[in-house]
Design a protein around this nucleic acid. Structure first.
Lengths: 213, 213
DNA sequence: TGAATCCGTGAAGCCCGATTAGAATCCGGG
DNA sequence: CCCGGATTCTAATCGGGCTTCACGGATTCA
């Protein structure tokens, strides 16, 4: 609970202001609080009074930074995905040039998992609430989700073309099963049950064996 | 969307009444509608007026059958898990006596998946909302969830003892990863994308390879 | 036929939570 | 020290959604 945002995206992608201005920091505090509450209570269950309490201010102050509750939520959801996608893209760029397609998938598994578990309430909020959003918020979120999915789709396509996936797996279904494997961790993982390193190691071993031809 | 309950549990475990009485059928209609809406909108987002509309009656009529909104939700959540557990128990009982521990896990994968995808909004409601419940409803649900988890835990314990799991997997983590693999399907599967049979076949292949020593 | 019970409706009551209005406070520059 | 904008607060409005209430049509049974 109550992970930090740790995300450069929150400030940088969102508007031009920098973090040193107090007002920008307050904005981030609100966003962080919203991510935390949203992740725990769901779209309809998130109350501005809860957010305000976590952010240590009064609810109406939120309106100084966001035009409405839905705008706040939309931004949290979007940042969650966009941030995740950037992190993943960076990690893949940093991979050794001779990495196999399967190895790249395992890098993605690790990156996704670490980001989800240690960094960001934004991501878990985005994951958990994707299905419950009303249509008007869903659009932007769906677009971003599609982009994120595309990164993964490429990974699986390349693995399939390089014959690194077992024959009896459909690449699309395999992708979804892998994403389930890692997305679901947010629902059960707790720091005292197993270290992140152990979860990552087990998940990588599991996925590698599941996919490898 | 809008799957049927198909569940004997709804009527039988819930009270003594039988389905032939019109009132009992109305009660089930409300429960089915609640499962459907709950699964789509989440705990806080489920409105009694939505449920009433799906069940084709007026909202206050719900109070003839359930003391409160929370009681209705609690029953949906509980039925979802209890029903799933019974189905799984039956499927495992019906397994051939000489099935290996790993084969039994694969039976569980298929049973869970088919139940989740083709039968029950109750189960998806239970899965999706487990994290968002307020404490007073959570108790009964947690108890039931623990029971369901225990069935799986046994499966993995036996597999581990029979050396059918790869050495570098922790049985507990492996269990959670498998449950993620299958629980997550509810989030993405749609009938037009792939048949249930194909999903089941891929998931079984995936899990077998992931786990098998 | 009449009465008891079951089922369900329509019209409020009431509380909670988003939002708005308007005032108070804070803070850097003159 | 004092002003003006930036920031935040308190108080009030407003609508939506759960719940209650009192009533009526049906169905059953004597």
């Amino acid at each position: 609970m109550a992970k930090k945002s740790g995300s450069p995206t929150v400030a940088s992608k969102t508007d031009g202001k920098t973090l040193d201005k107090k007002s920008a920091r307050t904005r981030v505090r609100i966003l962080d609080a919203a991510a935390q509450v949203l992740s725990a209570k769901g779209y309809a269950g998130m109350r501005l009074s809860d957010v305000a309490e976590v952010a240590e201010l009064q609810a109406p102050a939120i309106y100084y930074y966001f035009p409405s509750r839905d705008d706040l939520i939309e931004e949290v959801m979007w940042v969650g995905l966009a941030d995740m996608r950037e992190t993943l893209a960076k990690a893949l760029d940093a991979a050794p040039a001779d990495a196999t397609a399967l190895e790249r998938i395992l890098i993605a598994v690790e990156t996704h998992l670490r980001h989800e578990l240690e960094i960001s309430d934004y991501t878990t909020a985005a994951i958990r609430n994707a299905g419950q959003l009303p249509d008007h918020i869903r659009d932007r979120h769906d677009a971003e989700e599609k982009k994120y999915g595309a990164v993964w789709r490429d990974l699986f396509k390349q693995a399939a073309e390089a014959d690194e996936l077992r024959e009896d797996l459909d690449p699309y279904l395999a992708q979804m099963l892998v994403m389930g494997t890692i997305n679901w961790t947010a629902e059960w993982w707790q720091p005292n049950r197993a270290t992140i390193d152990r979860v990552v190691a087990n998940a990588q071993s599991y996925v590698r064996a599941a996919l490898a031809a």
